[in-house]
Amino acid sequence: MTPAKSVPLLTVGLVLLMASSTATADVVAVVSSRSTITMLTTNQLADIFLGRTNRFPNGEPAVPIDQAEGSVARDRFYGRVAGKSAAQMKAYWSKIIFTGRGQPPRAVANSEEAKETLVQNLNAVGYIEQNLVDASVRVLLTP
């Protein structure tokens, strides 16, 4: 293969790769399918994950479940819900941690662990990749 031909091929490959990763990385906000919570607005979801409230709009306690720092799901979630990059989220939590006002949500390793946590704790709310949604969880919104 000559270099001249390999460049367009590589480009096509990259475009396909990016398109596919975009498709699979869509995240959805979820609770246990046995939770009483049926819907949240993006702002309500952001308030829970930014530590501004620890309750759902109906007054039930809300326990946000994060995914590991640097994970695609986490970066995608905060990008969509709060408009913030990973560094901006770190800066946001630094402001809260170093003034003693709170701690960031507990983080689990991946979407499978997030689902397990949600099933065990009906107050928990998390986010997972859309293609991992099953009967154990209820989708609240696709940010």
Binding site: K90, A91, Y92, S94, K95, F98, T99, G100
Partner: peptide, 23 residues
């Protein structure tokens, strides 16, 4: 309620003025 030493929230960034990463 907190008892002890705290930094005053005079301005938006007063209590984190020394946390460069947060600013």
């Amino acid at each position: 309620v907190r008892i002890g030493r705290t930094v005053l929230p005079s301005f938006l960034y007063s209590d984190t003025r020394k946390i460069g990463y947060a600013n």
